[in-house]
């Protein structure tokens, strides 16, 4: 059988918020190591990779590997039924047709169970090549969300340029142009507020704002976001999920036609 318990259901609630813009259905791969998901959006422009390690759960049991196809909107509806203080347990039997979500209130006086039908999905797994990125930027996730929101008012696409001076975001459209420059912060400052640029070579890439604005739905998961970039390869936008794992978004760049 499969059973995974998280005292903080709010983590799973936030994970669903972070994927529901991009994915309508996804296969959750459950093994001894934990729960993994890899799925592309419908247009195959972005890829979501989620990893929740078994040791990050408060209780975890997986007797045999399971691939569970789930409707993301349905799962999101169910998780919205959990209070943030609730404990969540996911439960399925071997060869399951359904998965059960159990929510328990802190003093266990309310227990809710939701059973969701699983769906058969054609699994398409992509091999992500090991890449040494030219630029890796760590910055406050709220700042990144704000910049994506602000700049998307000016154009459909946003150019991210990274150099040793810092990181520059720009957008251009019918109304005019927008530019936001962030300088590296001094090492002594608060880590959550830090902007850190590790650069081997300067990089300038252009991405669709729509996807970036979907990625920043993960902002509540982590105070910092990591952006990894190299010329002419997908951007990696990564958020740590507490002590349990991470969510990575890969986004194909726009290129000159």
């Amino acid at each position: 059988m499969f059973e995974a318990r998280l005292v903080q259901s709010v983590i799973l609630k936030k994970v669903l918020e972070a994927i529901k813009d991009l994915l309508t259905e996804a296969t959750f791969e459950c093994s001894d190591c934990g729960i993994q998901l890899q799925a592309m959006d419908n247009a195959h422009v972005s890829l979501v990779s989620l990893n929740l390690r078994s040791d990050g759960f408060d209780k975890y049991r997986c007797d045999r590997n399971l691939s569970m196809g789930m409707s993301v909107p349905c799962m999101s509806k169910i998780l919205r039924c959990a209070s943030s203080e609730d404990t969540v347990t996911l439960r399925a039997w071997d060869n399951p047709d359904t998965i059960v979500f159990v929510f328990e209130s802190p003093n266990r006086d309310k227990i809710s169970e939701y059973e969701m039908k699983l769906i058969n999905l054609d699994q398409e797994h992509l091999g992500i090549p090991e890449t040494l990125y030219s630029c890796v930027v760590k910055m406050p996730s709220q700042e990144f969300a704000r910049i994506c929101r602000d700049l998307s008012q000016f154009g459909d696409a946003m150019t991210i340029a990274c150099s040793k001076e810092g990181i520059k975001f720009s957008a251009a459209g019918d109304y005019g142009t927008a530019n936001v420059k962030l300088a590296q912060t001094a090492e002594t400052e608060n880590q959550e507020e830090a902007v850190v640029v590790e650069m081997k070579e300067p990089v300038k890439l252009t991405f669709s704002c729509r996807y970036l604005n979907s990625f920043v739905k993960a902002t509540p998961l982590c105070a910092q976001v990591q952006l990894s970039m190299s010329a002419e390869v997908p951007l990696v936008c990564e958020y740590q999920i507490g002590e349990i794992g991470h969510i990575r978004y890969y986004l194909a760049p726009k290129i000159d036609d």
């Binding site: 422009v45 890829l47 992509l126 090549p129 890969y250 194909a252 726009k254 036609d257």
Partner: peptide, 14 residues
Amino acid sequence: KMAQRTITSFFTRT
């Protein structure tokens, strides 16, 4: 004019 690449043009199906 810029064109949107797909993720499958970078990552191969396994």
